[in-house]
């Protein structure tokens, strides 16, 4: 199973494009990891204005945090992050600098 948590800032990523953003992530996963990785689950969380900061200033940055099965090579992980970053930017009309993409092993304990 693959799981993604997408954290967005209020007013920055409209609800009506979130399905397209998710579809872009699914397409990226299928292209890099294959289609036999099990279901891909999404959780969305919106941070209200005034509660998030970047460098001390109000943030507009989205976070796309994925948990994938252990064993992915770094080459594939980077390719997956690149594809997700490109897809997210294209669909949302934001820049690479407006999204953080993290892909970690499912069992990583932090």
């Amino acid at each position: 199973m693959i799981e993604f948590v997408c954290v967005v800032q209020e007013g920055c990523i409209p609800e009506n494009i979130r399905e397209d953003l998710a579809n872009g992530i699914v397409k990226s996963c299928n292209e890099v990891l294959g289609e036999d990785q099990g279901p891909i689950i999404f959780h969305w969380r919106e941070i209200a204005k005034g509660l998030a900061f970047r460098g001390g200033y109000p943030s507009t940055t989205s976070q796309v945090k994925g948990k994938i099965p252990d064993g992915c090579s770094q080459e594939d992980r980077e390719l997956l992050m690149r594809k997700i970053c490109d897809s997210w930017s294209t669909i949302s009309g934001t820049s690479d600098d407006d999204a953080i993409i993290g892909i970690r092993d499912a069992t990583w304990q932090g």
């Binding site: 900061f53 970690r104 304990q109």
Partner: peptide, 22 residues
């Protein structure tokens, strides 16, 4: 600009998911 800070308000303290681990 790589330093991100989020404030999470709750009246039920106790447990929070790790953002970087399982």
């Amino acid at each position: 600009n790589f330093v991100h800070v989020e404030f999470m308000e709750t009246d039920k303290p106790g447990v929070i998911d790790d953002s970087h681990g399982a």
